[in-house]
Design a protein around this nucleic acid. Structure first.
Lengths: 155, 155
DNA sequence: ACGCGATATGTTATGTTATAACATTACGAG
DNA sequence: CTCGTAATGTTATAACATAACATATCGCGT
């Protein structure tokens, strides 16, 4: 059993425990996100799944499935990029705290790291001082990854 | 001369100094962003400007003008909301450092605050450790503002 | 095993956000 | 005043997302 299958299996268990079902289509969509190894737009994901799994995926279905995967904590929507990415922590036990996404603006590769509690409370305090309550479930930053950096000499 | 006119005047000077022109249409679009007092989508901005300034604005023009205003540092694109907001610091002299936007997800009111250099370098270091170079020109957070909070008792 | 309600997916249409490509107009330096 | 550049107009279309309703599938209780 390969690494992706293991993650899918784990995801299926997570769904079972929560009383939801990781159906065949949902598995394919999640597998697409994992195998592509980067963030994809809904329509890129459709192309990826259709070419890799030889099945058809309507935009509507994919959006619904993405919504489901988000609710289950198996995928994340990256708002600054209008793209979707598999959760990096399906397999590792730790509970999902406020994540920070580093998104390569060139190749859409994503690193999901954890933000330190200190940094969060700092941000919350600043917002609070300005009369705003932080509700953002995640932080997203536009970056250039190591692989893309050489092509960007002026950075 | 009212407050908005003063800001527009200042914006015009900024453009002059940079060898660009704040044309009539550009003034109207910028004024719309300032007067609406919140973030607007391009199409909301069109409606606002057409109803307030009795002129027509094609989507294409507005997108071009927004691009211009961003280049001049007079407006900002809020990626997490797909909306646009006037720069809060057109009138105050201080140089524009990495801004942090607190965006009310209910009413689109925005506070543009400055992020502390400490916090920035912290974020940069974290990204760097993960092999990503931070290039984000700004940070955006989804919030609930004081005015909208009472309608959200469970927050 | 069967039928029923709930969940999931299919289908069609449409709304929203954004850009491409080319035409026309306005502006300002020489 | 004319010529090149910058700005705006116009039309078309791409890219992202959701609404509304139809059909199919699943699993539970009998």
């Amino acid at each position: 059993m390969n690494a992706v299958d293991k993650i899918i299996d784990k995801a299926e268990q997570i769904c079972l425990n929560r009383g939801t079902r990781l159906t065949a289509k949902r598995k394919q969509v999640l597998a697409g996100l994992i195998e592509s190894n980067k963030a994809l737009s809904a329509y890129e994901l459709i192309d990826f799944c259709e070419s890799h799994y030889g099945d058809t995926f309507s935009a509507m279905s994919v959006y619904r499935i993405l919504e489901f995967l988000e609710e289950e904590g198996l995928a994340h929507r990256l708002n600054i990029a209008n793209k979707y990415v598999a959760c990096a922590h399906i397999n590792c036990g730790h509970t999902h705290e406020t994540p920070q996404f580093l998104i390569c603006r060139e190749c859409s590769k994503v690193r999901e790291i954890r933000i330190t509690p200190d940094a969060i409370s700092n941000l919350k305090d600043n917002a609070s001082d300005a009369g705003f309550m932080l509700v953002t479930p995640q932080f997203e930053m536009s970056c250039i990854c190591k692989d893309c950096a050489p092509q960007q000499p002026n950075l």
